[in-house]
Design a protein around this nucleic acid. Structure first.
Length: 482
RNA sequence: GGUCCCAUCGUCUAGGGGUCUAGGACACCGCCCUUUCACGGCGGCGACAGGGGUUCAAAUCCCCUUGGGACUACCA
């Protein structure tokens, strides 16, 4: 084991954002690549946002694509607890230290008071900012009020000088201290804010690399200040580019699915999602054009230096292509296992294992996600032939269509059993006898059986249908549409 | 508004001074394979935001402009 330690530190607010998945993945890949340790820490310092069952869901959702943690609530290491709400005493101790050293101070302003202050600043054309009203409040007075009044603790940010953030992805980023707020580090309910908790925990948990979303970059100087106040070594920072909506705003719920759970329930394969998400904001370089990566290959190829700076649009159509690609690589057993629940959801009886497998094979090359079976497999549950598409109807209107279908019906009726092996010779015979071939021969049969001009490979369809249904449908086509 | 980040085909990206008439993938279009439908194969369309520098030479380095984004809570 090298001493690389990284952490994925989500707040359990209900569902796992696809951007969180990528952050977790990059942390995981970086840890594995460097023989390091990947820690899962739950950032639940906001009581107002507590969601029942969120932590369990989070762990389950991360396991699904194969992201595992070396240390977590379930699997504690030497640096627990791994849940911030269980570390309150730790934070208090460090807040006290900061106050003792005059690097933090209590602030008795109420939320209403601050809100009013902000409004006045805006009205006066100023930039809203905490005005430091309790920054130099007399210590003895403050200590008295702390016994009775509600207060928060604020960081005493230096009013001059600059704070430099060194970032693996972005290089050196300089912030003037004067623009930094006196950040609240301890809330009036006794819980720390993210800023304090993540610094204390990262230090105590010996985190060497902080890999997180770019939205944290603006608050990083406050974190750096905290490290300096505590006289702790800084971790390395790597701020990842954001995942974007189509309109290039931060990927949000409003514009489509953002939860990993959504993609799971829509029938995306975990390996496809991992592969796709890895390639948003990172590429292997080295002149390779490789786009398909297993988790092992990603680990091998990954490096933070090759993470992109610019935000990236989450392009679902490419994800769908990639998922379709992975579906096509599944063997029969894997395919059936994957598709079966979705077939059931679509109202298809899967009790006949053999038939279910045939349906799966028939649709395999035609779907990009498992929920596509709903339309792709529709033809297998219809008992009555219905044709809506004009293109399909036109095919049955071809001069030769009637002859094809009538002959087909005659020949099939003489057969004891119809399957794909018996089907092909029948078509061959019709071709020879009637001199009709190609699309003119096959398409009328396709339309008669499936009601559409495109669908699964016909022999595969016939394997699923069997003689009786085939004859019934051709009969119906002749009666209703030819 | 302020602070910070970013900028190559519609999208994801390769490119880190000359090998770029800018490569790949998705999407789209066409052709081929296929006695059907797909899959697949081949090809086409399509970008260095603009302007200044630096340099013999810039997509690549610097500056400005423009554009986009994030942050600006007792949320993370």
């Amino acid at each position: 084991m090298s001493d690389v330690r990284v952490r994925f530190a989500p707040s359990p607010t209900g569902f796992v954002h696809i951007g969180s998945l990528r952050t977790a993945l990059y942390n995981y890949l970086f840890a594995k690549k460097n023989n390091g340790t990947c820690v899962l820490r739950i950032e639940d310092t906001d009581q107002a946002r507590f969601v029942e069952g969120a932590i369990e869901n989070l762990i389950d959702t991360m396991e699904w694509p194969g992201i595992s943690f070396d240390e977590s609530i379930d699997n504690p290491g030497d640096y627990g607890p791994y849940k911030q709400s269980k570390r309150l005493d730790i934070y208090k101790k460090y807040v006290q230290q900061l106050m003792d050293e005059d690097k933090a101070y209590p602030c008795f302003a109420t939320s209403e008071e601050l809100e009013k202050m902000r409004e006045e600043q805006i009205a006066a054309g100023q930039d809203p900012k905490y005005d430091g009203r309790y920054r130099d409040y007399p210590k003895d007075k403050a200590e008295q009020r702390m016994k009775t009044d509600q207060y928060v603790v604020r960081l005493k940010v230096p009013q001059t000088g600059e704070t430099i953030v060194n970032d693996i992805v972005r290089g050196e980023v300089v912030f003037q201290n004067e623009v930094l707020d006196d950040q609240v580090i301890l809330k009036s309910d006794g819980f720390p804010t993210y800023h304090l908790a993540n610094v204390v925990d990262d230090h105590l948990m010996k985190i060497t690399h902080v890999i997180r979303g770019e939205e944290w970059l603006p608050s990083t100087p406050k974190h750096v200040l905290l490290y300096q106040f505590f006289r702790w070594d800084l971790p390395q920072f790597a701020h990842l580019p954001l995942l974007l909506n189509e309109d290039r705003s931060k990927l949000s719920k409003r514009q489509g699915d953002v939860a990993v759970e959504d993609y799971r329930s829509k029938g995306f394969l975990p390996q496809a999602l991992v592969n796709f998400v890895a390639l948003i904001g990172w590429s292997p370089g080295d002149g390779t054009d490789q786009e398909i990566f297993s988790m092992e290959e990603l680990i091998e190829a990954f490096s933070l230096e090759r993470v992109n700076k610019a935000g990236a649009v989450f392009d679902i159509s490419k994800l769908e292509w990639m998922n379709g690609y992975y579906i096509r690589t599944l063997d029969e057993g894997q395919l059936v296992e994957f598709l079966q629940p979705f077939l059931e959801d679509a109202g298809i009886d899967t009790s006949d294992k053999e038939k279910t497998a045939k349906i799966c094979l028939a649709v395999q090359k035609r779907i990009e996600k498992a929920t596509d079976v709903k339309t792709a497999a529709k033809i297998f549950i219809n008992d009555v032939l219905e044709i809506d598409e004009k293109e399909a109807l036109d095919i049955l209107k071809e001069e030769t269509a009637r002859a094809v279908l009538e002959t087909f019906l005659e020949k099939v009726n003489t057969l004891g059993h119809l399957d794909s092996d018996a089907f092909k010779p029948v078509m061959k015979e019709i071709q020879k006898e009637k001199g009709i071939k190609g699309p003119f021969l096959w398409k009328p049969v396709r339309v008669a059986l499936t009601g559409a001009e495109s669908g699964p490979d016909l022999p595969l369809v016939i394997d699923v249908f069997g003689k009786e249904k085939v004859c019934s449908f051709v009969q119906q086509a002749l009666e209703k549409y030819v």
